[in-house]
């Protein structure tokens, strides 16, 4: 797509979208929001970029390897927070022991876990987009 307006708008909007995503992410602690929504919003920024410019351009700012690494990292973070609680002497996925008080512990735990969820959701969306974006759905290509 060679529309200059779209390109400029995308460049301008790219950061605010991510910022909004982060807002939804961290606001999820107190109100509606959270990792799922935030992840999709951040992914939308990248997908918009890829649609307006090209998938190759998007792969420069988000290389598939990094994408996959972050995907695994997000899920790992989720699990790891649980393990930390486990090592500190509580059952798995119990966040009470993470902070000084029960509430503080829950706060830190949920924050980290939601961040992991957001990271994973975002990267899953992007990698789904990558894997379907460049595919030629015509008849069998003779390669």
């Amino acid at each position: 797509m060679d529309n200059i307006i779209l390109k400029v708008c995308t460049k301008v909007l790219f950061t605010p979208i991510i910022l909004f995503g982060l807002y939804v992410q961290f606001h999820g602690d107190f109100g509606p929001g959270g990792g799922f929504q935030a992840g999709v919003i951040v992914a939308a920024a990248f997908i918009l970029y890829a649609m307006v410019f090209s998938v190759e351009d998007c792969k420069v700012i988000m290389p598939p390897k990094l994408n996959f690494f972050l995907l695994a990292l997000g899920a790992f973070l989720y699990g790891f927070v649980g393990i930390v609680g486990l090592i500190l002497g509580d059952p798995y996925l119990s966040y009470d022991v993470l902070g000084s008080s029960k509430e503080a512990g829950q706060h830190i735990g949920i924050l980290l876990v939601e961040f992991g969820v957001g990271l994973t959701v975002c990267n899953v969306m992007i990698s789904l987009f990558y894997s379907f974006a460049n595919f030629n759905f015509g008849k069998k290509n003779n390669d």
């Binding site: 789904l128 894997s131 379907f132 595919f135 759905f137 008849k139 069998k140 290509n141």
Partner: peptide, 16 residues
């Protein structure tokens, strides 16, 4: 997603 990915691969392998 998995189903679609498989469909894509099937289309590539069988042409249908």
């Amino acid at each position: 997603a998995l189903g679609l990915a498989l469909t894509v691969r099937i289309n590539k392998a069988y042409g249908s």
